[in-house]
Amino acid sequence: MKHSDLKNLTVAIVGAGYAGAATAKALSLLGADVTVYEQATQIREVGAGIGLRPSTMGRFRQWGIFDAIATVSSPSDYFEILTATGEPIMKEGWPEIEAYGAKTHLIHRGDFIDALVGVLPEGMVQCGHKLESIEDKGDRSVLTFANGTVVEADLVVGADGIKSVVRQQLFSDAGPVFSGERAYRAVIDVADAHGLAVDDNLRMYLGHGTKVYVLPLRHRNQVSFDVTSLCPDSTWTPAVTKDELLAEVEGFDQRIVDITRDLDMDSVNVRAVYDIDPVDTWHSDSVALVGDAAHSMLHHQGQGANSAILDAGALGDALADADSVKDALAQYQLVRKPVTDELQRISRQGWREDEVNDVFPGQKPGSQQPQA
């Protein structure tokens, strides 16, 4: 699109998570008039650590915010997969390092959100705006929020996560799908990691029906500790005891057992794990989905946040190259949807058949598709 057209383009982004903040940065750099509407009264991200791949860091360099992210993260050379008791299975360098001239960076989710929002112009993010409805008028769309605010924009970007209102009202009314998994996540001090945090590289320990991820955050002298296990309980935020969590790591490396035994359960984030089925269409002529709203996926490939950033970059590229918003949104989906469809598919293949059969005899996890 011409610079003059982009400068006159009004963009309303719903959601100030990874996808929304990154999209705001990408589109504001084109000169568009961007506002982000976030339902929370303040920006706050819970959870643990993630890895930002070289392609993602490459986008940050393109946007001029590489240093803002690098300052609050640790560069990592490789990841390692081990048995439950610590015997090596494979060790592999992160892909794309040479192509993008950057390593994978390990970062806490909260630091990541703070850094992304921190590089946006003051006032661009408007908190306390919970979306109630969206009306697609073709070349423009109208948003109505619970606080009474009504916004009309040339382009609306739904970055409102796995329970996206934008997606469910315009593109698919299907809700989140239970994966048959539960994740327990905590951030602990390096001193409490019983010697497992020896460098800046991710390690995954594989047990029967349980995986343990140890992701160092040594720039903040901490470790992200994640236990993911097969589980038939679809309760979104279940109450779990220390003994129940210890049972999940029985037979693992003693250091993992010791870390688990030392955890303060009040600091452990416990969630049933959900994703969504692939959505056939992500866009209309004036509305597009990005991030989890478009393609929420399981965390086994570590690609959720990375996909959100690459969505933002691809949307920005499409708007810069196409003749109209309509053409740009079609091009954006053409570029990104095949990639994320495949990542969603692969992420659902995180368990061996015998493991699944032990927990879900006679059926596949998620086959009943309960909604949270």
Rank of each mutant, 00 (worst) to 15 (best):
A328D: 00
G291L: 11
C231S: 11
A294V: 08
N201S: 09
G316F: 06
A312T: 08
G291C: 09
T56G: 06
V268D: 06
Y213G: 04
D200S: 13
D33V: 07
A22H: 03
N201W: 04
I162P: 08
T104L: 15
L30P: 05
T83Y: 00
A308M: 06
A12N: 06
S4H: 06
T235Y: 00
K7G: 12
L27N: 04
S224K: 00
A115M: 04
A12G: 11
A239P: 10
H108A: 14
E342V: 03
F171W: 08
V117Y: 02
S324I: 12
L298K: 05
A159C: 13
P176S: 15
A193V: 01
G362E: 10
G180V: 10
F252H: 03
T149I: 02
G158W: 08
V177Q: 06
F60V: 07
A68D: 15
S133V: 14
N147A: 03
V198W: 00
V214I: 14
Q168K: 15
G93F: 13
D111S: 14
P54I: 08
P216D: 10
D67K: 15
V156H: 09
W236V: 15
Q169I: 01
I346F: 13
H295L: 12
A305R: 01
N269V: 02
L143E: 10
R203V: 04
A322T: 05
E132Y: 02
I188W: 03
V142A: 04
V165M: 07
A183I: 12
A12E: 14
H300C: 09
D358N: 10
A186V: 01
L116Y: 01
D139G: 04
E45R: 14
F360W: 08
R352W: 08
R261C: 05
D262G: 15
T41Y: 15
L319S: 07
Q169V: 10
K364D: 12
S284C: 07
E353S: 14
L143T: 05
H194N: 05
D226W: 03
K130C: 10
K103G: 01
I13G: 02
G64F: 13
E92L: 14
G362F: 00
Q363H: 10
I97N: 02
D264A: 07
L289S: 05
K163W: 13
V117I: 08
N221V: 09
Y78F: 15
T144M: 02
Q169D: 13
W236C: 06
K130N: 13
S4Y: 01
S367E: 12
E250V: 06
V117K: 02
T71Q: 14
R255C: 02
I276P: 00
